[in-house]
Amino acid sequence: MIRAALTDLLLVGPAALAVVLFIFLPVGVVFGLAFTDYQVGAAQAEWVGGANFAQLFGSRLGRNALLNTLTYAAIVIPGSVGLGLLVALGLHGMATRLPRLSALLRAVYFLPVAATLVAMAVSWQMLLHPSLGLANTWLQALNLPGQQWLSDRGLVLYTLAGIGIWQSTGYNMVLFLAGLAAIPSTLYDAAAVDGADRGWTRFWSVTWPMLGPTTLFVMIVTAASAFRVFETVATMTAGGPAFASDTIVYALYREGFVYFKAGYAAAITVVFFLALLALTALQMLLVERRVHYR
């Protein structure tokens, strides 16, 4: 018994120690720093309690970053999940009739996931250029006015959200394709006997209920990705114009690595962590009730 326990401890111990040192300990340090005014390089720090959190929620810039992040997530999550499902359904049905075309389209849709995001952001900057970009060229060809996609305060956040949907659709498509492939064909045969043999009837009675676990996972992964959006903001707008595209993670970067306000950046990190945890719990509570596991 003792020998078995020592063997288990020897096997589990290194991994458990790594988790404590590289996950739990840094998290504890961040939570501690969030209640101080520590700045990088300072010899000491003062305990300020909830002053950092009050500054985050009380300042216009703090509230703006939070609101922009929520708006971005509210657009990207349903957009990329819904579009990923539609693309997966189309490619799954095409796989039996046109397998080569289906494989080619899968690679095309997955390209944004496999490509370097910074390189893709530069490509989007060229595409959305106000005078040389193809987007405005196409609009002018249709006799529509060109847009300042990345410099219009009322448009820039929605432009970034559209790029976020484009970026996430391919990954969601792959997950939904895996879920569709796991649905037994016998369920469709049984549904056909009951009259659900085509179209939306077949989808709502068999496909959608059986995709419940996959949909829950896709929503959680997409929500986490949407809330931590950073690369496109940093590369394309740097939070501008006039903080119109500022997000909570970019604000964290700016305060912590540009202004070196480690205490305030830690408070932003805590708020981000708790918000993401609450959103995940809410998704599980609302969606889990309608999920069918086999």
Rank of each mutant, 00 (worst) to 15 (best):
L150W: 03
G58W: 11
L91E: 03
W149S: 01
G49P: 04
S59H: 08
M173F: 09
L101C: 07
G162D: 08
L11F: 15
L286W: 10
G170N: 02
A196I: 06
L132Q: 05
A242H: 10
R289A: 09
L10P: 06
L10M: 15
Y38H: 07
L56C: 07
L132F: 12
V193K: 06
F243N: 15
A15W: 14
R63W: 12
A238E: 05
A265W: 07
L134Y: 07
S185A: 13
S102Q: 13
A226G: 07
G49A: 09
Q148S: 15
A161W: 00
N143W: 13
G50A: 13
Q140T: 12
D194H: 11
I163V: 09
L105N: 05
G90P: 07
V218H: 00
A234Q: 15
M236R: 07
Q283F: 02
G199M: 12
T169P: 01
F272A: 10
G84N: 08
V258F: 11
R100V: 10
R60H: 11
L286F: 05
L285S: 10
V287N: 10
A266E: 04
V156P: 00
W138M: 13
L61A: 10
A4T: 15
Q44D: 15
G49V: 10
F110K: 00
E288K: 12
F230S: 02
L67K: 06
A192H: 11
L104D: 06
P241S: 02
L89C: 05
T7C: 06
A266K: 02
A281H: 07
A190G: 04
V258T: 12
R290N: 06
G195A: 12
D197H: 15
I268K: 06
Q125A: 05
V291I: 09
A119W: 13
L17R: 07
M1Y: 15
G154E: 13
A119G: 12
L128P: 01
G239R: 00
R97L: 10
L177G: 03
D197S: 14
W166E: 05
A238F: 05
A135I: 04
L83N: 02
T7A: 14
G239S: 01
S245N: 00
G199F: 14
R202K: 11
T201A: 14
F273K: 06
L150M: 03
D246V: 07
L274R: 03
I2E: 15
V30L: 14
M236F: 11
D189R: 14
P209A: 01
L139V: 03
V12L: 15
T247V: 02
L33M: 09
A74G: 12
P145N: 12
L111N: 01
A161Y: 00
R290Y: 05
L142H: 11
